[in-house]
Design a protein around this nucleic acid. Structure first.
Length: 570
DNA sequence: AGTGCAGTTGACTTT
DNA sequence: TAAAGTCAACTGCAC
């Protein structure tokens, strides 16, 4: 008896899924049965970055995949247990087994889990065939070549949903063996005739027990987060194209306009209900139709570049998984406290995480995130900047907090971004966001602050960005410490202090050579972004400045590469 | 009309 | 997708 297990990880889709396609091909050639499996692994669910919303979104996506797959004739099941354990049980059903999956770029524990699975497969005569994920390259030796690989991978046609009809149905004998091997409680809601459907999955007592064990302290799922399922992902792209995204490029910066002008497909990309290649082909199809509107054209271009950057960041974690817990540029080690928090640090971390820093734009963005699981990129960068610079907290303490809040949490984007926004990569410009300036720029009417911090809504709009500057007469009218806190730091002073401390490291003579090594391994080689000569100016003084700049370009220019950063697609 | 000057703008540099 | 600082050109206005 032959069995091909398609191990779905963060690639919950049926189309453009190479492992699934390959499994079906093999199964047809040797008469094997294909089983689609989604694993709920206690050790992975217990990771500090995981929250119930992630599992909720994943299961919604899985249910839609599983129902469609069932209708097409592919049996799918959720299997509970550690990966090696689950595969051992499947193998013990006496099958000749193969595992098909994508290469996963995840956090350290998933990396270790994959090593363990690989070792188990090698010693148990099980073939595990992994396919590359999007444009991420395993064992990339030369960063210079990466952009070309991205283009090559993206340009090939997305794979269609395989035809399952010709596959042998799982025999009663196989089903009996699987049930026996997995034990009834390990095999949940297989989508085959006569077996309960998966729609009650998220409410099942089994799952609640599992969650209670793995995430005992996790807050409840977010009620107003986006919902999962590949159909919803495509709906988002359609509404984006039908007007919502027209002003994407100019509207993505303000949290007010970004909410609807951004594509919002990022959670779907994170769980893989749509592939980067599918999204890229969608963009190109829009463009092929011819675009009259300059604004929409610019927005689409902007959107496409984010698909590129998505993989660019994940590639960093793929190439150096230690980035999850170690600075890219080791000279920054020890700058902030990585160990146990002092009581003061702990208080600052709590205030930030609980949206009571007393700095309205920070707290407003954190509250939006807490409620919905999403805020636009610029505001995410500001939240990280504030924690890392003004509050002087090490990113290893703050990254898990936002990981649990981001519905679109993607480890490969999250950690490189946290390092970048904390100024510890050495190859990126140090960006210290001023939350008061951001409030005035992105929320000039104080509308966003009033929405998320009703305690401040009675203040005149001009005072909402920095209520501590408001006169005593205004403060007396109900704005007091017991309603909305005073700022826990002096924003101006803390920003200056942080800048001085980070630049002190950056200016050390040995810093430059380490940065060069970081750039060699991780830096962006996008020719459109880098080494572009400044446009020549006519005036003599400007020409001489231009010349000076040009002469510097032979050296490693730390400000040009990596100028464009993002947490996720917006 | 031309000059001096404070204030503004924009390009560019520094941190 | 930073923010602050520098510098020169420009502007509006008073005289």
């Amino acid at each position: 008896m032959k069995l091909a297990v398609v191990w779905f990880k963060r690639d919950l889709r049926l189309s453009d899924h190479a492992p699934l396609t390959q499994a079906v091909q093999w199964a047809q050639s040797v008469g094997a049965t294909v089983l689609g499996a989604y694993l709920l692994e206690p050790s992975q669910l217990a990771h500090r970055d995981m929250a119930r919303q992630h599992l909720g979104f994943a299961l919604e996506t899985w249910v839609s995949l599983s129902n469609e797959a069932g209708a097409l004739g592919l049996p799918c099941s959720v299997l509970h247990g550690e990966a090696v354990d689950v595969f051992s049980r499947l193998k013990s059903a006496g099958t000749e087994m193969r595992i098909y999956s994508h290469e996963e770029t995840g956090h350290w524990e998933s990396f270790q889990r994959d090593i363990a699975v690989r070792r188990w497969c090698d010693t148990h005569a099980v073939q595990w065939i992994e396919s590359p994920n999007n444009a991420v390259v395993r064992r990339l030796s030369d960063r210079d070549r990466w952009s070309a690989i991205w283009a090559q991978r993206m340009q090939s046609e997305p794979l269609p949903v395989p035809v399952f009809a010709a596959l042998p149905r799982p025999s009663a004998e196989l089903m009996r063996l699987l049930h026996q091997a997995l034990d009834a409680q390990w095999l949940t809601h297989i989508n085959m005739p006569g077996i309960p459907s998966s729609c009650e999955l998220a409410d099942s007592r089994q799952l609640q027990t599992l969650l209670a064990n793995c995430m005992p302290d996790a807050p409840a799922d977010k009620l107003s987060r986006q919902r999962g399922g590949h159909k919803l992902a495509w709906d988002l792209l359609h509404s984006f194209a039908n007007g919502r995204g027209r002003e994407y490029r100019s509207a993505m910066s303000s949290p007010i306009t970004a909410e609807s002008a951004c594509s919002r497909i990022s959670p779907h990309l994170a769980i893989g209900s749509i592939s980067i290649r599918q999204a890229a082909h969608w963009v190109w199809a829009q463009r092929a139709a011819g675009i009259e509107d300059a604004q929409w054209r610019a927005s689409l271009k902007s959107f496409e570049s984010r698909l590129h950057w998505h993989c660019h960041f994940i590639q960093k974690l793929e190439s150096e998984p230690q980035l999850e817990w170690r600075n890219a540029h080791r000279l920054y080690d020890g700058l902030r406290n990585e160990g146990e928090l002092t009581p003061q640090e702990s208080e600052r971390l709590q205030a930030w995480a609980q949206a009571r820093t007393g700095v309205p734009m920070i707290d407003a963005c954190m509250r939006m995130l807490q409620t919905s699981g999403w805020v636009n990129f610029r505001m995410r960068a500001m939240l990280v900047s504030f924690a890392s610079y003004h509050l002087w907290l090490h990113w290893t303490h703050t990254a898990p907090v936002l990981a649990r809040h981001f519905l679109d949490y993607e480890p490969g984007i999250h950690y490189p971004q946290f390092q970048m926004q904390s100024g510890v990569t050495g190859i990126n410009t140090i960006r210290i966001y001023n939350p008061v300036k951001q409030a005035l720029d992105q929320d000039p009417d104080g509308e966003f602050i009033a929405r998320w911090i009703p305690e401040l809504a009675h203040l005149p709009p001009a005072h909402r960005a920095a209520p501590w500057l408001a006169g005593a007469d205004l403060l007396g009218q109900g704005l007091s410490g017991d309603q909305y806190p005073k700022p826990i730091v002096d924003v101006e002073q803390a920003g200056r202090d942080a800048r001085d401390r980070v630049w002190a490291v950056r200016k050390k003579p040995e810093s430059r050579s380490v940065a060069a090594a970081v750039y060699e391994k991780h830096g962006s080689r996008n020719p459109q972004r880098e080494g572009r000569p400044a446009p020549a100016k006519s005036a003599a003084g400007k020409a001489s400045r231009g010349k000076r700049k040009a002469s510097l370009q032979g050296e490693l220019d730390f400000s040009a590469p990596e100028q464009m950063d993002l947490f996720s697609d917006e």
